[in-house]
């Protein structure tokens, strides 16, 4: 990540002295590919979205984006003992009580979700709910082609402790901190997500869903076997229109934060690591033009990811 930082700074320097303009240039070589976005978490059903990759110059309005999602595929998930064909569930015909979840998945307002025909694949069969220590095979059959993948749910790592302290110079605002003891004998990789559950004026939790931080992925290359403290920012504060810029990134005194700390296998980590590198380098040629590696075999893009999250509640008080 440090190489990215160096490159980022150099980019910053160049941008200060340069000028830019929009150009039309031929970018040859587009091939439509299937995109698999699937995951399975401990005690949760498998969940898969399918879509198509789009030409770089293709229309990018909302309808074009939503029309990229695919229905009509046959998806099977197997843990070696149980093999389950996932159900196709579409937004215009949702089981009662799942509207909110579906709206979050597609990023649409809950009241509009029924107006679209957007499909996802999952199963309510508890036999195929995620369990620590198991390996899950995925098979997608679509338009006569088969795509396969495998992921694992590894044993989670728990925090030693969590705490909050105000940032120097402030009394009511600070980052969230944890103490973590990384296991020495395994290669470990983690994902950090958060949501605040203190209630707002309407009596609802402030954050409806978990939000990823800006660099939510890390592995133990630097910290293998160490016990150490680290902090993460409050990613939600950057999206809050009424938050003051000097307090952005911090949790407020008395915030109650649920930290979802998920462990993943190395192949899943590779996908997410390269994904966040790409997101931070933004297609700049200062970074190597590299595709995000996929663990889907058969010519598709995307990921089939297994996570074993732990949940820890932090009350922001000293």
């Amino acid at each position: 990540m440090k190489t990215q930082k160096i490159i980022g700074l150099i980019v910053l320097l160049f941008f200060t002295i340069s000028c830019e303009k929009e150009v039309e240039i031929e970018i040859p070589g587009y091939e439509k590919q299937l995109v698999v976005d699937g995951f399975i978490e401990t005690n949760q059903p498998p969940f898969v979205l399918l879509s198509n990759s789009q030409d770089i110059y293709s229309p990018t309005d909302l309808n074009s984006f939503l029309s990229g999602f695919i229905s009509g595929a046959i998806i099977t998930v197997s843990d070696g003992t149980n093999s389950v064909v996932l159900d196709e569930i579409c937004t215009d015909n949702l089981p009662p009580g799942t509207e909110e979840f579906a709206a979050q998945i597609f990023g649409l307002p809950v009241e509009e979700i029924a107006n679209y025909h957007l499909c996802a694949y999952t199963s309510f069969n508890p036999l195929i709910f995620g369990q620590v220590g198991k390996t899950y095979d995925l098979t997608v059959s679509y338009e006569g082609k088969n795509y396969t993948s495998t992921t694992q749910i590894l044993a989670p790592t728990y925090f030693d402790s969590t705490y909050w302290k105000p940032t120097e110079g402030l009394t009511d605002y600070g980052y969230s901190y944890v103490t973590l003891s990384d296991p020495v004998e395994t290669k470990d990789a983690y994902k950090w997500e958060v949501k605040r559950i203190n209630k707002n004026e309407d009596g609802k939790e402030i954050d409806a869903t978990f939000t990823k931080t800006f660099q939510p992925i890390f592995n133990d290359d630097f910290i293998n076997g160490l016990t150490f403290d680290f902090w993460y920012e409050n990613p939600m504060s950057f999206k809050e229109e009424n938050s003051k810029s000097e307090f952005r990134g911090y949790y407020k005194l008395n915030d109650t934060v649920v930290i979802k700390f998920s462990k993943m296998d190395q192949i899943t980590f590779e996908f997410f690591e390269k994904k966040y590198v790409q997101l931070s380098s933004g297609g700049s040629p200062f970074a190597s033009p590299s595709n995000i590696p996929t663990n889907i075999k058969g010519g598709a893009l995307g990921v089939w990811a297994g996570f074993s999250p732990i949940f820890d509640t932090l009350i922001c008080k000293q």
């Binding site: 970018i27 040859p28 976005d37 770089i56 297609g283 995307g302």
Partner: peptide, 12 residues
């Protein structure tokens, strides 16, 4: 140079 030929969406 190498530019992206296509885009796709994962987890929004």
């Amino acid at each position: 140079l190498t530019l992206p030929t296509s885009w796709y969406v994962q987890d929004q």
